[in-house]
Structure formats: structure tokens, C-alpha cells
Design a protein around this nucleic acid. Structure first.
Lengths: 165, 165
DNA sequence: GCGTCATATTTCACTGGTGAAATAAATATA
DNA sequence: TATATTTATTTCACCAGTGAAATATGACGC
């Protein structure tokens, strides 16, 4: 299917790096698929993935707090969307916003007790599915996969410089 | 950073499959990063990735044609969005729509000569960046990566059944 | 041949993410 | 000290994708 398509493209544009194209395409598809799976598991809890990861970051912090800018870095979201995410979580009482005392430009975001309870409640529902995703992977394969992904991430970071203002 | 966060979560919820969680998270992040890189490369051509892949599918077909439903399968988009994508490409004269003679419920979508020229024009601009993404990967590593991604895709397909109506 | 069910595409309303711009505060520079 | 530049967050408008519903056509069973 995809391979057949790529070889047809290759016929017309012979210098195309077919193997890399196929790998990139596969990664994009699998990534999208995994995202969809995650969204599906979160849907009953009325949560999307960026809200989920934001909550998880806060849950994992020693004091349960962070700033919008910091959360943006950890969740790879833009500031605009982080505002929206935080609004949604505040509305549900899972987090609260406050002023930062050391820098008045900053907002301080903290997970609430209800937020902690919520995380503890939904996490176990996701474990079986998470393990299913990696069924049939040996420990070596998992490690290799992680290594290759990190390598890729590094390359993408280097590819980005002229893209970053 | 991410690893520290996951071990904190592990403290609070000890039965969490930490390794799988970390891998899944990494895959989601790298996938998103690659997508962003692709979008960035397509932006000067006023094209987004789903439009790009739709065009590529048509370009690679022997007769340069397909149906919306078929394109949905190959590009992993929903029917609704394929309508929007096709509208955008028709508007630019890169594809054209026509009736299917064998099944009147179907629309036939074909790439135009202008569409073919457009693809031939933009593809070479993407090769250097595509190769950059896999710099430092040996042939074995590329093959392994592909194999692991396919394995994952298979698992995700199996995880999906109860999710599919 | 008719009724029921399934399929293909599109429309509409909504969700989640982005870019540009605005505002206030902090930092750097002269 | 005053000014210029940078940073942090939010608002607003827009984009791209989804779910539900609608409409027409095709397949299937009786």
C-alpha cells in the first residue's frame, strides 16, 4: 500500500530518499494512531491528551505546582493553548491559579486535592491498554526503540534552528 | 525531566508501567515534533500535511485518481475532513472532482496536470530536510526502527477493536 | 419487486490548537 | 535614571479535524 505508493513516486522523482520517506510516514501514522488511542481512553473521563499531560506534570511535581510557561515546555503546547487548558482544568476544580510572588508577570498553577484524587482514579484504568501497546516487545527492543526515538528527537532539534526565531 | 516526572508518579501510583509510559510519551512527542517539522516545510507552499499526503497518494496512483473514501484510508483522515481537503485542493486547481460511473454514490478525484507539476516542484525542496532527520542512523537502525514501528502499529490495531463500532 | 440495511459523501456545529497582537512586568543598556 | 528590549500571559480570530445527521445510492433478503 504505502510502499507501492512510494515506489510510484520514486519512478517520477528518482532522487527521492524513499526509505526515509517511508519511515517518516510510518512514524507519523503510528504517532497519530497512538494519540487517537490515548484520546479514546481519556474520553470517558472528559479529558483530552494535553489536559491529561498537564495534570500529570503537576501531579509529578514535588509541590504540585508550575507556571504556564514551564508547562508549555513540558507538554509541547503553545502559550495560547495552555491558557485554554488551564481554564478547562480550573473550571473542573482540578487545578487552581494564583499569583507568583517572585515575578509578577507569572501565574502559579497548582494541582488541587481533587485533582490528585482524579489522577489516582483514572491512571489505573489506562495501564492494561498501555501494556497492550507494547505486547511482544522484549526489554532489548524497548530500549532500542527508546534510543532510536531519542536520536530522532535530537536530529529534529537540530533541523529546527533555522526554523526558530 | 520526563523521567524524573514519571518516577514521581511511580511513587504515588506504584503499579504504573513506567517504562511503557515513558516510551509512549516519547513517541507522542517525537511524532508531534516530526509533524511540526513537516508542516513548517510545507507552509511556504501553502499546503498542510493532510493536503500534502492526499496529493501524494493521487500522484502515485497509475491513473492519478481515487475516491474520497479510499483517500481516507490511505491518509488516515475522516470523511468530513477529506471533503474539506478536497475542497481546498480543487480550489487551487491541483485536483478535480467528477462522478464515478460504476457507483453513483461515489465521487472520483483526479490529480490535474498542474497538480503533478506542483508535486514535482515541491518534493525536491523537502529531500535535504528529510535526510537530516535520519542523519546518524545506520541501515540496520533504520530497518529496526521500521520493524518496531510496524509491530506497534499492529498492537494498536488490536487494541482498537473494542474501540471500533 | 419491495423493504431493510449498509455505504459514500457532504453539511453543520463543535473542539482543540495556532498566530498575531495587546498588556504588564522584568531585564539590559546607555 | 531613562529608555529599549525581552519575557509571561492572555485575548481574539482563524484553521484543521471530529461527531452527528442528512441525503442518495447500492446490496441483500424475503
Amino acid at each position: 500500500m504505502m510502499d507501492a505508493g512510494i515506489s510510484h513516486v520514486r519512478d517520477a522523482v528518482p532522487e527521492m530518499p524513499a526509505e526515509e520517506a517511508a519511515l517518516a510516514r510510518l512514524l507519523l501514522l503510528v504517532g497519530a494512531q497512538l494519540q487517537q488511542e490515548l484520546e479514546h481512553r481519556l474520553k470517558p473521563h472528559k479529558l483530552n491528551d494535553s489536559e491529561f499531560f498537564t495534570l500529570m506534570i503537576l501531579f509529578s511535581r514535588p509541590e504540585g505546582s508550575s507556571t504556564p510557561g514551564e508547562l508549555c515546555v513540558y507538554t509541547s503546547q503553545g502559550p495560547t493553548n495552555m491558557t485554554r487548558i488551564a481554564n478547562a482544568l480550573v473550571k473542573r476544580g482540578l487545578i487552581e491559579r494564583g499569583p507568583s510572588e517572585e515575578d509578577r508577570r507569572r501565574v502559579l498553577i497548582r494541582i488541587t486535592a481533587a485533582g490528585r484524587r482524579f489522577v489516582r482514579q483514572i491512571l489505573p484504568t489506562m495501564f492494561p491498554h498501555l501494556k497492550d501497546v507494547f505486547v511482544g516487545f522484549s526489554e532489548t527492543e524497548k530500549r532500542t526503540f527508546g534510543r532510536l526515538l531519542r536520536k530522532l528527537a535530537l536530529n529534529l532539534d537540530q533541523a529546527a534552528p533555522d526554523a526558530q526565531p
